[in-house]
Every structure is written in C-alpha cells, then in structure tokens.
Design a protein around this nucleic acid. Structure first.
Lengths: 261, 261
DNA sequence: CGTATTCATTGACTCAAATCAATTGATATA
DNA sequence: TATATCAATTGATTTGAGTCAATGAATACG
C-alpha cells in the first residue's frame, strides 16, 4: 500500500527531517538550484519571507500582476483556470517547484488562480529581485530555464492526453501509471481528491465516477480511495501507457559535454 | 480584406525584402535574439545550416532524440501530437520561433511531430552547440528563457480554451479575435486550412464545419474561406474574448529596472 | 450532540460532439 | 481530358459525456 501524491511532483534534494525556518534554508532544499551560488541565493532571499499557509489559502488570483515569485517548499498548490464560477485544474505543483515563473519574469498577468491544497511552506521572493537575479546570474537563469522547460513539457503531455484519448482511457492510464509505480504492491490509495483528478483529466466528477466502474472490468478495482490491482495484465492490455504522455517530467539541469576547446 | 496567418506567430524584426542566405544572417532576423552578442551568434551558426523545406516535409518525428535545434526563419511549421494514425495540432510555429527547445536542452525525446506547413526556411543548429552556447552565454540563456516562457503561456491558454469552453465558443472566439484585429475591415480570409483550425481547437472537421453555420447567427458569416463581419456587436455579445485565453503571447525579453545599487 | 457542508456515487435524461457515409469542389497528376 | 486525391460540407445516426437531481458517506462545526 503506497500513496501516489508525490509522483506528480518534484523530488526534494533530501528528506528534510525538520522544515526549514528561513527563506535561505528553504531554497537550499530545492534540488534544481544546486548549481546556483550561495551569494545569489542570499541576494534572492534578502527580502524574501517564508510563509506557512493552510489548505484553501488563495495565493493569487487570475489576471493579477505578480508581486512575488512563489516557490513551494513543502505541501502542494493547485493552479486553476477560471471562467466565471467554473474552475479547471491545469497544474498541480509540489515541493521545489515555482509558481508560474513565466508570468513573473515577463511582468504579465497570471493566467491561473493558485490555491493551497496541502498545507504549504512557500518562499516569497520580490518579483523585481527575482528578475534582477535571473538577469545577472547565469547559473540561476539556467536553472530557471530547466524548470520552465519541464513545465512546458508537462503542459504538452497534458494537451496530448486530453486531445488524443477518451475519458475512460485517461482515467485508466492515470491509475495504471500509479499501479506500475507501486508494483509489486497489490493496492494503493489515492491522495488526491477525485474531483481534482477529474478536473485535471478534463471531465466532470460524475463522468469520472462512472468510468471507475468500467475500469474495474480491466483489472483495477476501485473501492473508495483504494485501488486494488486485480489483474495488471488486463489493465496493460486495455490502457497502453505512452511515455510521451504518461512519463515523468522532472526538472533537469542543463548538462553539456566537456568542452574540448 | 486582411489575412490572419501571422497573428498567431512571432513578428519579425523587420520585413526582410530578400530572404537571408546564411544561417548567421537568418538569426539576425530573429527579434528576441537582439540582445545576444554577435560572437555568440557566430559560434552558434559556425556549423549550422540554413535549409529551405517544401510544404509537407517532416522535420522530426515524435520520440526522436533531437540532433539539432531548429529555428523557423520564414514559413511555418505544425507540431502534432500523434497516437497511432491520429494527429492533433498542438502548436503552430512561425518566423522567429524555435521548435521545442525544451527537448533539445534536456536531451529528451520530442513529444511532437514537426511538419512544414508553408514552405519554410530553417536554421539547423547542432544540439550540443546550442546547449553549450546557452550554458556559456548569459544573454542567450535569457533570450531562450523568454522564448520558453511564451511557449508555456500559450500552452496554458490553449488548455483553458479547450477545458473551459464549448466547441462553438472556441470557434466563435477564434473568429472574433481575428475580426477585432482586422477591423474596420468588413471581412477577412482564413489562411489556415479549416481542418487545422479544427484540430487546434480540439474538435473534428465535421463539428467545426457545422458550427460555422451557428456562428453565422451571431454576426460572422462564413463563406468558403472568407468570413464576413456582418454584426460585430452580436458576435461580441455571444463570444466574450478573454485576454487570459485569447490575448497574444509574444516573446518578451526580460526587462529589469535600473539597478540603483 | 445534531447539523451543516462537502465529496462521491448513482440514476434518468439531454445534448454536444463524434462517427459513418455520401457528395461536391478544388487541385493535382497521368 | 480523364483520373486520382484531398478538403469541405451535409445528412443520418450513434454515443460519449454533461446536466440535473437525489442519496449516502464523511467530515467539519456550532
């Protein structure tokens, strides 16, 4: 029995036994900032604050102009596209990830609404301080580029998932992907609320709920928030995972071959 | 009567009367590379080639590992998500844009298939040379970051469009957006094939075709590839453009306030 | 405690959009 | 000129998925 929450998210450098208490210490836990100099991190966090926010906290609203760059240290944040009273989950962001750095860099309005899902620690860096640091520190710029590249690829995968697969296939692949990860466990629990999975997969709660029964016919029995892996081969036969859709997309620091010049 | 093809695309620095004949000259036409030093552009194009490709040419296939970074100088390129014999248009790329730089930077497989739409001139830069240049030149790194940020935001907008709007709304907003841009013209022509618009908007050709009749009831009469703006207010009333979905998303070079340090 | 409130499930029904199929028109191609 | 080929339209039909509504289960709360 394993949980799947972190599968969608960035891995931490290490498992911090005690949470960081300063912005500086918090950034030190972010894996993809490894190559950035201490001085730059000092500069970034000089006027930064580290906040702990309870679930449900609104971090920013769609169309707002960013005042801060937010970095998730722990917990998780949901990013919604909003239209009137409708919300659709566009991205789920976890430890080590930035919240829409593209908007902050470009001084453009946020395209999404951000709300805390699991109680989160967040580093808040002044937007202008962040821009200046990116503009003046090459290593940071490279790291942010890698981060942004990962975000882009996640979006493309999500678009392919939604445009190329039926609702049942999306749900089936979502479960099968987790099942493959937790094998040889015989079952696993969902850590995400079903309404969020449904929204992320581009369907209504009801449709999602209904497809669960259908999934049961293909080796994955759903019982509440527990999924029992009854027949993995049947699931594999019905739902074919595609690494170009279902594969993980981690932030990769840019690696170049040794310069022979 | 105005065409709309370029609306989705990057603007050129200037309108080059004669097309560039060397990779170096080609990169000089790319607006967002303005701040990059001539030496770096020289280094980038040292082993680069400038190719002219006819419509239909396949540039790379999904799952391939990038050997080159491709930069579109003129013409346009379609990027498809592929599943078996199904293709869905994920992005349409025009002059001045890079083809999936994220994959090239990360040495990861392409998530999409690239095919020439309008005869295109392309600069092909060795992948490793590109990575080295980004790793060693801060200005280039910043420029690519801005480019990648724009791509990310385009993807988010597309996801919101598809997940929050009905098929008719997507089509209506697509046309209305162009109509607003060409006003006070009374009509405009589509430069994109309808099947491509349909695919980009996440629907079948047939559905797209049918919605055209419905759109006609709201002030936008479709006749072949010409759209007549009969009643712009009716169209505005039915299809509400949202800048956070329909707004343009150009590559913006990072600007920082003057350092007062 | 009982009582809201939120989430999940289920049923009945509707409807939007896909599918299948045929036709037209336009553009190549032999 | 006849013949493929492909894009677009249109009709008939199916179906996948949304909507509306009711219920149960779990959790929060006064």
């Amino acid at each position: 029995m394993v949980t799947e929450r972190l599968d969608n998210m960035q891995s931490r450098v290490d498992t911090p036994q005690q949470p960081p208490t300063t912005p500086r210490a918090a950034l030190a836990t972010v894996a993809w900032l490894r190559a950035v100099s201490g001085e730059t991190l000092d500069r970034l966090t000089e006027f930064a604050v580290l906040h702990r926010m309870p679930p449900g906290s609104m971090l920013f609203e769609q169309a707002e102009t960013p005042a801060f760059l937010l970095c998730v240290v722990s917990g998780s944040v949901e990013l919604f596209g909003v239209r009137g009273s409708d919300e659709t989950l566009i991205e789920l962001v976890g430890p080590g990830d930035l919240l829409l750095p593209a908007a902050v860099l470009n001084r453009q309005p946020y395209l999404l609404r951000a709300r805390v899902l699991d109680e989160a620690q967040l580093v808040m860096i002044q937007a202008e301080a962040f821009r200046r640091a990116v503009a003046s520190d090459h290593a940071l710029c490279l790291a942010v580029l890698a981060c942004e590249a990962a975000h882009f690829r996640r979006q493309v995968k999500s678009a392919k998932n939604i445009k190329l697969r039926s609702a049942e296939e999306r749900v089936g692949c979502y479960f099968l992907k987790i099942a493959e990860q937790v094998l040889p466990a015989a079952s696993f629990k969902l850590t995400l609320e079903k309404r969020l999975i449904a929204s992320q997969l581009g369907m209504t709660r009801e449709t999602f709920s209904r497809t669960l029964a259908g999934i049961g016919q293909h080796g994955l029995q759903v019982e509440g928030d527990t999924i029992h892996i009854i027949n993995i081969d049947a699931a594999r036969a019905r739902f074919q995972l595609d690494p170009l859709i279902d594969g993980p997309e981690a932030v990769q620091p840019l690696a170049v071959e040794a310069t022979t010049t």
